[in-house]
Design a binder for these strands. Structure first.
Lengths: 319, 319
DNA sequence: GTGAAAGCGCTAACAA
DNA sequence: TTGTTAGCGCTTTCAC
């Protein structure tokens, strides 16, 4: 059809014909059928995003910026929540395979490698935050937080803390391993001895933060806590904010991630902050190219330590 | 092909053949091509979600719960951010038309009706929070906040406030009109006179909240502020939290929406809370049916007034 | 500069 | 119970 050529801006169409066709298409709201294009093998412009959840402000901001970039690049963004569950993650990959997603950006769930590889043919896979073997080469966008975590520990040490606890993700996550190592390196460079009883690990979720914070506070032999995860940080913080004032009096706290309200809570929460928007833009950049044209890529963005009121002010009502 | 029948659980296939086919499909990770299904006219299982943004915790929680429901219902959720801009919204509808979305859930952007109707053929449209004429029958899921806003005003009046300001969305939004009316009704039932200078309206965004809060505080003749929008509430709150202590001393504040941290800020922020999860589940329920089988539906969920420390405690650092 | 044919993966309808 | 045909909307190839 000449119509098809006109709509695709092909040169071999009389200019007036082309214009007439295009104008009419716009008038009647015609758009090309993506399914038909996909079936011919033209690719889909679909980007999948797999996140543990989208309520945590870090993930929300990432998704927000990514979605903006996708609008600009005319990509379709399909979101799947994994709850950090490998089974759910597998199903998400399956669904994205059905619609022939061009790229998938994902925060790998903890746990063993499952048979996802069957769903990854020709898919441009981009890992975020964490790295996990997928049985095929993948790109990754990481956060380099070694230095920032070290600074956090030294900051606490400088305030006189000698018993600093750590709550983070366990060894099933690459990020869990790296952050724990960074914490221990920080202790060493601050001249503090490591006490394994003060290092508590678990799944990267809110309840791990809650549970371990309560446990560390209960022992009474910890004077500060450093967090190694977004959800964990929120969980720990919830315990601090709801604890009796005399229990947390003088306790040091360093969160992970920097949601907007951390600056407002308890006089300002010290934290490890990352360049969310830059992460998301890089992700969009990588996701925009089909797998075959996209060389595998590995890039890390440096995190920073934000010092605020490391000792949370107790909350008090105003009336 | 017998294979197709086997995979579709068609009865006319020898049971052992069927099982063999299904097992093999699972083993090699075969999934049906959604594009081919769509091209036959079988529909797409794609649900579009159009939100102003996804960082605001109300929208984030809505999207989160909706995404969960979509996983359960095997629907694909495509997210588009509109920034409350009609042009961007129009482009999003266009993109969803391309992929033949089955349903679109959207928070209508303020402004005139544009020619979206061309992109809505056979689409199950579900409006959220706000209502706007789309030139065709649509379902809507609303928040009934008249009573809650009235309670908020009466609560403030009960605390002795006589000059209560209001910051909300303007008349371009159905929700803006309704909430303003609810505020005025609240004043009336509290026996307070309406002062139009204390009622400030604008776009439903953060800066509207910031700007008008600063303005109302500067005039000095307002002792409390009620917010009529999610983003607006956050904007107003940011001004309160960053203002000099003596300026906001004794000021009353009622926010809109109930993000998790409102309970922690300044001793607890009083607010209008809504049943986010219920809204999202209802949205998923409506979105799961194709347009032709879905009778148009209009449902409202009651909001509630949550009284906390209506007078924000000033923030102070702890060390 | 324009049209005709073919095929992408799938399933409803019909034929065997 | 299984196989064949046809067509969904699009673009590439080839013919005119």
């Amino acid at each position: 059809m000449t119509v098809s050529r006109a709509l695709s801006d092909h040169p071999n169409v009389r200019p007036d014909t082309r214009k007439a066709v295009q104008d009419h298409a716009r008038k009647v709201g015609y758009v090309k059928n993506a399914a038909a294009k996909a079936m011919r093998g033209d690719g889909t412009k679909i980007v999948g995003l797999l996140l543990p959840n989208i309520v945590n402000e870090f993930y929300a901001r990432f998704a927000n910026t990514l979605a903006q970039s996708c609008e600009d690049l005319s990509l379709h963004l399909i979101i799947h929540l994994t709850n950090d569950d490998p089974e759910t993650e597998l199903r998400a990959f399956e669904r994205l395979h059905e619609v022939q997603a061009m790229s998938v950006i994902h925060v790998p769930a903890p746990g063993a490698v499952r048979n996802v590889s069957a769903h990854l043919n020709g898919v441009n896979v981009i890992q975020l935050i964490r790295e996990q073997n997928m049985g095929q080469p993948v790109s990754s966008i990481l956060v380099e937080d070694h230095r920032a975590i070290g600074e956090a520990v030294q900051h606490l040490a400088g305030l006189g803390h000698q018993s600093i606890g750590y709550i983070g993700a366990d060894e099933r996550l690459s990020s869990g391993r790296a952050r724990r190592a960074a914490f221990e390196a920080g202790l060493a460079s601050a001249g503090l001895a490591r006490d394994d009883r003060l290092i508590t690990l678990g799944a990267p979720d809110f309840s791990t933060g809650q549970r371990n914070a309560a446990r560390l506070l209960a022992t009474g032999n910890v004077t500060a806590i450093v967090c190694g995860g977004f959800e964990i940080s929120n969980g720990v913080l919830s315990v601090f904010l709801e604890a009796d004032q005399d229990v947390v009096q003088g306790m040091g706290f360093v969160g992970y991630g920097d949601p907007s309200y951390y600056a407002w809570l308890g006089g300002g929460v010290s934290t490890i902050a990352m360049q969310v928007d830059e992460l998301a833009q890089e992700a969009a950049r990588l996701a925009a190219c089909p797998a075959e044209e996209q060389p595998v890529n590995r890039r890390a963005f440096e995190a920073s330590f934000v010092a605020r009121n490391t000792h949370l002010a107790p909350m008090r009502g105003g009336g």
